[in-house]
Amino acid sequence: MADGKRALTGTVERREIPALKIRINLNGKWRDDDVEPRLLLVHYLRDVAGLTGTHIGCESSICGACTVLVNGDAVKACTMFAVQANGAEITTVEGLATNGKLHPLQQGFWEEHGLQCGFCTPGMIVAAHQLLKRNPHPTREEIRKGLQGNLCRCTGYQHIVKAVEWAVENKEQ
């Protein structure tokens, strides 16, 4: 009955795992990398691509600090492997400003003091981006619900709600 091939510690023996080639459009530019399959998307963005604006807060897909857009959908990059994003278009907080001009949401967070320590902010802005794409004129209640996947320990959220409202009102600027 005993299966002698198994390690008894509960961990799999480390084996040489071949790296995989992935091609990702990151903030508008394609790049090719060889990655270990277990490399989390968030570590790929931060450590391989050097885009450290995306943060790691909870590692259990609760806090949303690692939120990025994958093919236009906000996802938590700590709960996805880089290989799963092969072929995808990814937008991080670094990709939101255009031609040096802040995205209205970024501007809104600045205008309305939507951040304090700033650690949750990139994920919060990306999640808000998703919200406004689907619901361009959300109520305060809807903004709060739309940001349910993003924790902020500093602001008490009220100024974040105002920041999103600012962006709604100043979309064209």
Binding site: G53, E94, W110, T121, P122
Partner: peptide, 21 residues
């Protein structure tokens, strides 16, 4: 008055410890 800290933070251009290599 708007914060001086914010432009770097809202663009993900600031550096927390884990951002240094």
């Amino acid at each position: 008055i708007k914060r001086k800290e914010d432009p770097r933070l809202i663009q993900g251009r600031s550096h927390y410890v884990d951002d240094f290599k």
